[in-house]
Design a protein around this nucleic acid. Structure first.
Length: 686
DNA sequence: ACAAGCAGTTTTTTT
DNA sequence: AACTGCTTGT
């Protein structure tokens, strides 16, 4: 007779032993999120409430409680964010966290598509186009359709590309979208539709995908191929999504697909920080999450650990002016602190000198440079300041603005690599052929068509068909490509060969500044060295472009962590002790492109909210009164409308006084105490 | 017919 | 700084 023995479970002893004391490290709301079970979880987390911390601990918790790290998918907004979170989780727990799969939606989709592309009629080695490549294709298609540009006010190639992309990222039609956003082009809706059709066909026949395709083709793949969906979603035991308020329709659908097998999905975000509506994101996406996933557990993080109460008061006041009423109000225990200040400067130069001097002073008082940041609306708003910082010897890094891989000369060299990787890539062929003397759009097109129809062997040129005016230079191009291909050297060797070939072209095309551009190319070769192969280099560059200013950083003071300059968009998710928001002008912070559209205007307001909430203890907002415009010359600009009529108990006012001698020890006027001691040296002539 | 060079206009934010 | 449209040159 069988006997049954019962062992009593002792929760003290038999619970998995956790090396991290989660309860102690987190507040109760964070703890609830980190230790939540499976199923859909929505975490609505205000600015500075420990959103990143929560995700990091969540990753560690999942790993510790037995989820294989490679079955955890952490989708973030930038690759920087995903690297940071994964390495923080690794430090918290151990190296197992390194195997968590992370990245942007685009890079995660790329990985899937590289594997399964043939299932949807693409080669595995398809090329990723950035938006200016896409605009070039649009132009080729438009020319091919014989659409005359000299029709009245026909949209530019960039505009057509952004219309096409705008429609694909939203739940709308071309008709509706153009009527709403580009009423001046309503008469061309049909033509734009034709261009769009041609554009899709062109991409498909040449193995090209734009950014939208990475998401949409991946979604199509998962929806149409049950076995692929099962395999991919089967590997996603836990899906975590950061910055969910900035996802668009297709990203929400992808989240659904990824989590379709295990339904363990946690999304984190803040509707008040949605700043990518221009790209199709909709903050209502995050609010409708519980409707899209049944039995959603909703948690809120409202306790701010970052900022002083005075900064939060200003932030709460700013966001209360939005048409849409956001529900949460942030609170903190950091009472008091300095009142944020709004500083009026006479012009750009005064603003720059003010900021640089404050930074020097604050550093003098012991705050490291990398805990300060200067934020601005547009990449070019910091040009003047960058000059001033260089003059003062303040090292800085800049995020946002011009990217290395967007510079014409880098794109030229990259296009050579791209045709080696994907010989069908007609955009790149088009680009590199037109660099040859005597070859323009028409000839480039004819050569491409000849290559596609004719010889099996790539990079071979047959005689007589082409004019002797350029035949030799085409042959020269093919020779270089063939040599690079046959030699199978390292990336560096391949690039060096191409740059050597390209150098004379560079001198001809950019005669006035070729030394600077050649320097960029050398620097680029150095960066490329760290990539394992050509394909990885090209994909990484397309999805995670390198900042152009990485080049200018002077090696003199590289032991000091640099000051951060950033567009507000690129500063999302970051925090600093001291923040300077510069160029807070009407027409810049509410961008002049947004003032007619109340939704867009609201987004600009949220942008200001994001900027303000980056600051922990000190916030300076400044604007120059005098601005220049091309033909009108100088004119007086007004401060941001968002900063008007702010009660004096929330925002101080300051002005800049010029003082040729030394600091006056006396009592300055109250409103000027913030900038007491600012000495402006005589304005240099340059 | 097509390329090259010049003049005038237009520039957000990002994967 | 890059794109578009116009004029000139081969």
């Amino acid at each position: 007779m069988a006997r049954r023995f019962v062992i009593k479970l002792d929760p003290e002893r038999d619970a998995p032993t956790l090396t991290i004391n989660y309860e102690e490290a987190l507040n109760s709301q964070q703890y609830a999120a980190v230790t939540a079970g499976g199923g859909p979880v929505l975490v609505v987390a205000g600015a500075g409430t420990g959103k990143t911390r929560t995700l990091v601990y969540r990753v560690a918790y999942l790993v510790e409680t037995g989820t294989p790290p490679e079955q955890i998918v952490l989708l973030t907004f930038t690759r920087r964010a995903s690297h940071e979170m994964i390495s923080r989780a690794s430090m918290l727990l151990d190296g197992r966290c390194q195997h968590v799969r992370g990245g942007t939606f685009h890079s995660f989709c790329l990985g899937i598509l590289r594997q399964y592309a043939p299932r949807i009629g693409f080669p595995n080695n398809f090329t990723i186009m950035d938006s200016s490549d896409a605009a070039d294709v649009v132009d080729v298609v438009r020319t091919g359709l014989n659409i005359r540009k000299n029709r009245r006010r026909f949209p530019r190639k960039r505009t057509i590309q952004s219309i096409i992309s705008g429609v694909r990222n939203r739940d709308t039609t071309l008709q509706e979208y153009v009527e709403a956003k580009f009423p001046q082009f309503v008469e061309y809706i049909e033509v734009i539709g034709d261009i769009n059709d041609g554009y899709s066909r062109y991409k498909r026949s040449h193995g090209l995908m734009d950014y939208d395709d990475l998401l949409l083709h991946c979604l199509f793949l998962l929806e149409e191929h049950e076995d692929v969906r099962k395999r991919v979603a089967g590997g996603c035991r836990h899906v975590l999504v950061d910055e969910y308020q900035d996802t668009n329709l297709s990203q929400a659908a992808l989240v659904r697909a990824f989590s379709s097998e295990h339904t363990n999905i946690m999304v984190v975000g803040d509707d008040a920080q949605s700043i990518y509506q221009f790209r199709g994101a909709d903050f209502r996406n995050i609010l409708s999450f519980p409707q899209q996933f049944s039995k959603t557990l909703t948690l809120k993080l409202e306790h701010n650990y970052r900022s002083t109460q005075r900064i939060l008061d200003l932030a709460n006041h700013v966001i209360s002016n939005a048409r849409y009423k956001f529900e949460k109000k942030l609170f903190t225990e950091k009472v008091g602190g300095e009142l944020p200040v709004l500083v009026q400067a006479a012009d750009n130069r005064f603003e720059s000198r003010f900021v640089a001097q404050q930074i020097l002073e604050i550093r003098e008082n012991g705050l490291p440079l990398n805990q300060m940041a200067v934020l601005f609306r547009n990449g070019f708003n910091s040009y003047d300041l960058e000059v001033e910082l260089n003059r003062c010897g303040i090292p800085f890094v800049k995020y946002g603005g011009m990217k290395l891989s967007e510079a014409a000369h880098i794109k030229d060299v990259l296009a050579h690599l791209k045709v080696l990787e994907n010989p069908l890539d007609a955009v790149s062929w088009n680009r590199i052929l037109q660099l040859l003397e005597g070859v323009g759009p028409k000839t480039a097109q004819r050569i491409i068509e000849w290559m596609e129809s004719g010889p099996g062997e790539a990079f071979e040129l047959d005689e007589a068909r082409f004019s002797p005016r350029y035949i030799d230079s085409v042959r020269g191009l093919f020779d270089v490509l063939r040599r690079v291909l046959n030699q199978k050297g390292s990336i560096t060797e391949q690039l060096e060969r191409i740059v050597a070939y390209y150098e004379p072209i560079l001198k001809r095309v950019h005669y006035d500044d070729h030394p600077k551009r050649l320097q960029d190319l050398e620097h680029f070769i150095g960066i490329a060295e760290s990539f394992p192969d050509r394909a990885t280099l090209l994909s990484s560059l397309a999805l995670d472009p390198i900042e152009l200013t990485a080049i200018d950083t002077d090696p003199v003071q590289d032991d000091e962590p640099p000051l951060v300059l950033s567009t507000i968009h690129s500063a999302k998710g970051l925090e600093f002790d001291t923040v300077f928001l510069i160029h807070a002008l009407d027409g810049i912070l509410p961008s002049s492109y947004s003032v007619d559209d109340s939704d867009a205007l609201d987004e600009e307001l949220r942008l200001l909210y994001v900027a303000v909430t980056r600051a922990a203890t000190r916030l300076f907002i400044s604007y120059p009164t005098l601005q220049y415009r091309r033909y009108e010359g100088q004119y007086f600009a007004s401060p941001s409308r968002f900063l008007e009529n702010i009660p004096a108990n929330l925002l101080d006012e300051g002005s800049i006084v010029e003082e040729a001698v030394s600091v006056v020890e006396g009592a300055p006027a109250e409103t000027e105490e913030e900038i007491q001691g600012l000495i402006l040296p005589p304005t240099p002539t340059n």
